[in-house]
Design a protein around this nucleic acid. Structure first.
Length: 480
RNA sequence: GGCGCCAUCGUCUAGCGGCCCAGGACGUCGCCCUCUCAAGGCGAAGAUCGCGGGUUCGAAUCCCGCUGGCGCUACCA
């Protein structure tokens, strides 16, 4: 183990969409850990999944974490002695590493097609066997391998988990955890596109970056034996592992966008103060002394105790966050509050985008406020008379609203994309397009007459629009 | 299904063998303050400490079993 080595921890988000509250939570914990142990806090971008890669995501991650005040000591944008800090720029490292493993027989090429793997899993499921790779390609003779290579059959590289066997590792919060290798699959290490999987990249990078403590979410516990096996295969010392409880939805499932706003962009735009959000996250899991309810980052760095963290997954209680945020807001000098409002609610660039949408529809200046009110409201609550299309039942309308939510969630936030989403929805459901648009209008604006719908949604933003849909659904479902 | 993790008021948590017929906070309810609504003050309801066995003079606290929740079970992280 690495006992006296300097403390180096990392947060490793992947740029696949909006920055997530869960990322903020783990980032906070890593940040605190580094601060109180005089270590370094590193930001590493895990962009090895090219199918889910979102261009704008990385920048949003930077901005959101900075907004929260969680500054990193090393990262893609600030540099450091262990770069590059983007995994897509480190692919040579992974290839070299995997080659070492292959040479020592600890990893092997697998030429199985996705179709075969799927069929295999289906069969295993039918036979009530646990789904795992059947090691067909481990039996391949050298001749067969070179033949496949010569024919350019696409392949992945898998790790050869020693069978039989077992792996034990220590979780700093839970103690020893043991896994029988019968339950550890021959993980894919290198994908057929040449990119590494998380498991490989994370181990190679954590070692290369001299990470001393891996502080990550609990969902990783079951893959930790794979990581430990990898460290052993490379002959590297493993870091300490601290698995943190998973944030939960009100129904206790892992926090998800369908049941909770999870985008940090949303929290920013909806008007939560970073200090309040940080304070709230610090309350979850209970690492702070029990008699303290309100504290800032500096106080947390001073008093937070990792050993105190309670292991049950905390529900992310929006109600309590709102209350806390209110406490912070009320404590602000009015001058500061004004500044916050100017910046976040009545922001210059926001107003600039809204003005042209209302200009054509006003006779007096004061009417602009009436027309644009929904841009500034936290919630609009249209009654059924407003949102229910004539001759549609409530059930039917709510179902369409759910589909609308799902569709918009998956949609890019551009005019053509939104338009296509709505029209496709109309076509699939048999609803006239105008009814779909009107329903969306009612939910977004609370009214049947509004500035241009798509333009309005564009300006209002994806995170908040989706939230409005979600809250609408929640409210109406609760009402019947 | 298999494997793993977890388990105190609706929610976040305090408690780490006697101070607990379990404390605080959010939420809920009531009262006060008050032109309204908030905020604030005061108070109330709310947990047989998931269940069953042990260990012990004594268990929310230790052990075992059960149950339940959650996670993982991808060429996603």
């Amino acid at each position: 183990m690495m006992n006296d080595t300097p403390i180096r921890v990392r947060i490793a988000p992947s740029p696949t969409g909006d920055p997530h509250v869960g990322t903020a939570y783990i980032a906070l914990l890593n940040y605190l850990f580094a601060r109180q142990r005089h270590g370094r806090f590193i930001l590493r971008i895990e962009d090895t999944d090219r199918t889910r890669f979102v261009e704008t995501s990385e920048q949003m991650i930077f901005e959101s974490l900075r907004w929260l005040g969680l500054a990193w000591d090393e990262g893609p944008d600030v540099g450091g002695g262990y770069g590059p800090y983007r995994q897509s720029e480190r692919t040579e490292l992974y290839r070299a590493a995997v080659l070492r493993l292959q040479e020592s027989g600890k990893a092997y090429r697998c030429f199985c097609t996705p179709e075969r793997l799927e069929a295999m899993r289906k069969q295993q499921a039918a036979a009530k066997q646990p789904p795992r790779y059947d090691r067909t390609c481990l039996q391949l003779s050298p001749a067969q391998v070179s033949e496949n290579l010569a024919r350019q059959v696409p392949f992945v590289v898998r790790m050869a988990v020693p069978q039989p066997g077992e792996t034990t590792f220590r979780d700093e919060l839970r103690g020893e955890i043991r896994f029988d290798h019968a339950n550890v699959d021959d993980q894919v290490l290198l994908k057929s596109d040449g990119y590494p999987t998380y498991h490989l990249a994370n181990v190679v990078d954590d070692h290369a970056m001299e990470i001393s403590d891996v502080i990550r979410a609990e969902e990783w516990i079951s893959s930790t034996p794979k990581h430990v096996l990898l460290y052993q295969a490379f002959g590297w010392p493993a870091p300490r592992f601290w698995h943190m409880p998973l944030l939960r939805n009100p129904d206790k499932s892992k926090i998800s966008k369908r049941k909770n706003p999870v985008s940090l962009i949303y929290y920013r735009q909806a008007g939560f103060l970073p200090a309040a959000l940080i304070n709230f996250l610090g309350l979850l899991g209970g690492g702070m002394p029990a008699d303290l309810e309100q504290f800032n980052l500096a106080e947390m760095a001073e008093k937070f105790q990792f050993e105190r963290i309670s292991l049950g997954g905390p529900v992310f209680d929006l109600e309590k966050l709102r209350w806390l945020n209110g406490v912070y807001l009320r404590a602000l000098p009015p001058e500061t509050l004004l500044g916050e409002l100017r910046e976040n609610v009545f922001g210059e660039s926001y107003l600039r985008q809204i003005v042209p949408l209302v200009q054509e529809r006003i006779e007096t200046l004061a009417q602009a406020a009436d027309l644009a009110d929904f841009f500034f409201r936290d919630e609009v609550a249209p009654p059924p008379e407003v949102y229910l299309p004539k001759k549609r039942s409530k059930e039917e309308t709510l179902k369409m609203s759910s589909e609308l939510l799902a569709g918009l969630e998956a949609s890019d936030w551009t005019h053509p994309a939104l338009e296509k989403t709505l029209r496709d929805l109309a076509e699939q459901s048999g609803w006239p397009a105008k009814e779909v648009f009107m329903l969306f209008r009612a939910i977004l604006t609370g009214k049947t007459a509004s500035p241009p719908l798509l333009e309005s949604a564009l300006v209002f933003g994806k995170a908040r629009t989706l939230d409005r849909l979600r809250r609408f659904l929640e409210r109406e479902k609760a009402r019947k």
